[in-house]
Design a protein around this nucleic acid. Sequence first.
DNA 1: CTTGACAACTTACACCATAAGGCTTAGCGT
DNA 2: ACGCTAAGCCTTATGGTGTAAGTTGTCAAG
Lengths: 217, 217
Amino acid sequence: MTTRISETKVRRERLSRERILRAALRYIDEHGVEKLSMHKLGAALGVEAMSLYNHVANKGDVLDGVVGVLWEEIEAEAEPGADWRENYRRFARAIRDVLGRHPRAVPLVPFRPVMSNASLRAVKAQIEKGVESGVDAEEAYALLRTITSYALGHAAIYTNWELACASCAPSVSDLLRDDTPDDLAEIAHVFCGQSDPDAEFELGLGLMLRRVSTPVS
Amino acid sequence: MTTRISETKVRRERLSRERILRAALRYIDEHGVEKLSMHKLGAALGVEAMSLYNHVANKGDVLDGVVGVLWEEIEAEAEPGADWRENYRRFARAIRDVLGRHPRAVPLVPFRPVMSNASLRAVKAQIEKGVESGVDAEEAYALLRTITSYALGHAAIYTNWELACASCAPSVSDLLRDDTPDDLAEIAHVFCGQSDPDAEFELGLGLMLRRVSTPVS
DNA sequence: CTTGACAACTTACACCATAAGGCTTAGCGT
DNA sequence: ACGCTAAGCCTTATGGTGTAAGTTGTCAAG
């Protein structure tokens, strides 16, 4: 009985929301979102599932928290410099790079609108730099939203794609249904297989940032 | 005993993959992806859960199938016309509109790379029109991928946003954490609340399609 | 009428989120 | 040194989940 006391005291380090979220992200990175359960998360922390509920409202809260952590990572990677255009680019790249580092967590991000302080701080900084440089405020917001959509969409599709290739599908053909006609299969290879995601990401970014103030279309 | 036979015969109409997928999409539209279970899906079809497995490999297969149905809807909405630039625009709008009509199914689309015949047919048609009009083939592919990323990202963020507003969050403030400082809250309102998603979608599209052949950045 | 195939049903199991309640321990005032 | 309190952790219990395995009912071809 008393032996058990000292044993626990030595082994266990204090649980906290912070620690839980980090463990959750680590678990998702390794095993994927769909494999995460409160039991496993508890186990990863050397603790019973229900103990987590002392620091976290429920599983959804954990997931939201993970998204928050990711936004913090993005913010840290995108501190703005002098040129606003370059800043926007850096912001988009930060999104892409961070999500690229946590590919299995990507599905959470676009669908859990956590307006974390981190993400808002990042946005604020970007906008201010833009306006400071003479960009119309409304346009600055619109452009930033557009770029964010693009960066998230790109990250979603490509990280997911790479995951699929790495894990289960060694070639494009394996992603096609059995009844795919040849001409469409060929298209699939060209459309999905050939290009360099990094270069292409920069392409879209360049297109959007090239010249903002000219009339559109 | 014999009464029960005729009863079943009358009542039950044949199950099929097709019917299952449609029911799944309908259920998702009404209750969201996370609420869908094989039991409920079976119930919606007047059938036991396990019967579905005669037509469908597993739940993942159902979800993939739903994405396929969505791509078919997109294809039907984006048949190409004469001007390739306009076609690309139409393709992007089709993605956005269809996903806008099935907001709760959106989370499935970017993360289930179903290369359905429908989506490939659409891509093929777009590309051919572009090349026919003198666009470099490689550039045509890259641009189409870029636009697709953008359309999916935009749809993901905004449909999700509107869902959140309609269901649980009457104002932007409700999406913020309690500890959000005032200046950041203000940014959140401007960044998230003010703009017209349609107009903004067109803005991004216009930026990307304006002039393709000039060197980038 | 028999046989077979196959669709749908039933049963069974391991796992899930989480509500309710019990135990252990740390930190305090005395 | 003592017990009090509150918080952190654990145990137990409930109803829902995906799906494997085995059973029953139905119809068509022989």
